[in-house]
């Protein structure tokens, strides 16, 4: 490789790699999750396991905190001292919060990866390139949501013993040990949807792409869609709640607001692409 090639190579890199994710976005994939509708049934999590070839690590490793649940169902209990006695607190039950990668538009994980294995795509996705990952785990340390999962072991033999490996999704790779992974908004489905639309010679429509979690949610609490398509259901939900991408404070936080839409830890200015609709309970 001559010096000229090297310099050209370098100048190409400088020109074509936009720093800080200022893409002209083709799509902006988002989720809107209504916590009023969420029953905590975990169907989304199970669907995610099936769709994305997630390893089942077993009880012991899960307890150690080495689980691989890209979509985790978090349970929150109202503390007894906040009103009522212990019995009442059990009866009221938990609140649920399904957490998956928030696909932040100003993602904290992206600038710290030494090999640029995680980057922002023109689809507004926070992509993880498994083949490029060297496992420095800095991205997970810098994720305020702790939504990145590391392959601490090679799970292929233990997680899918014969003949279970036949059920693996052929559209997505099985990650080996030493690689960071996380929710991709079912990027393989987005690809398939785009290819399908292209072969039919039309634009991508709302509903062409549905993530596994949105598809499996029995109460349809999870809605997936493109924010740049104003007709999409997700975009309408965001607009209805007056939640916008960009600012680190939403209308809901203003006094006397009836709105329910918020984004998790948005005060950190990570600009996440997942909107939650607050759960409303009596008293």
């Amino acid at each position: 490789m001559s010096l000229k090639n090297v310099l050209e190579n370098w100048s190409d890199y400088r020109k074509t790699h936009e720093q800080g994710g200022h893409h002209e976005y083709e799509h902006m994939w988002t989720l809107a999750i209504d916590l009023n509708k969420c029953t905590g049934c975990n169907a989304c999590s199970v669907a995610c396991y099936a769709e994305n070839n997630l390893a089942t690590v077993g009880k012991e490793k899960l307890h150690k905190g080495q689980g691989m649940h890209w979509l985790r169902m978090e349970r929150y209990w109202d503390e007894p001292q906040m009103g009522g006695d212990d019995a009442e607190y059990h009866e009221r039950g938990a609140s649920f919060l399904p957490m998956m990668c928030q696909h932040c538009n100003a993602a904290t994980c992206e600038p710290v990866c030494p090999v640029a294995a995680t980057y922002h795509t023109p689809d507004g996705l926070n992509a993880q390139v498994y083949n490029r990952c060297i496992g420095s785990r800095y991205c997970s340390n810098n994720c305020p949501y702790r939504l990145r999962y590391f392959n601490f072991y090679s799970y292929y033999d233990t997680s899918w013993p014969e003949p279970l490996n036949q059920q693996l999704n052929p559209d997505i790779s099985v990650r080996d040990k030493g690689v960071m992974e996380k929710c991709t908004f079912c990027v393989q489905r987005i690809r398939t949807g785009k290819d399908q639309a292209a072969s039919e010679g039309r634009e991508l429509r709302d509903g062409d792409v549905v993530t596994a979690c949105a598809q499996s949610c029995p109460t349809q609490a999870i809605v997936f869609g493109d924010m740049l398509d104003e007709e999409s259901e997700a975009a309408k939900l965001w607009a209805k709640q007056q939640v916008e991408l960009g600012p680190y404070e939403q209308k809901k936080d203003k006094e006397g607001s009836e709105l329910r839409g918020y984004r998790v830890l948005e005060a950190l200015n990570t600009d996440p692409c997942v909107m939650y609709l607050d759960r409303v309970r009596e008293a």
């Binding site: 190579n9 640029a116 990952c133 496992g135 420095s136 030493g178 690689v179 960071m180």
Partner: peptide
């Protein structure tokens, strides 16, 4: 401490035909 030790040289800006550079 790397998960994939065998790829550690990827952090160095070596010249690659694929135009891949570290971050």
């Amino acid at each position: 401490h790397l998960g994939r030790v065998w790829n550690m040289y990827w952090v160095l800006p070596y010249v690659s035909d694929r135009g891949i550079w570290p971050n």
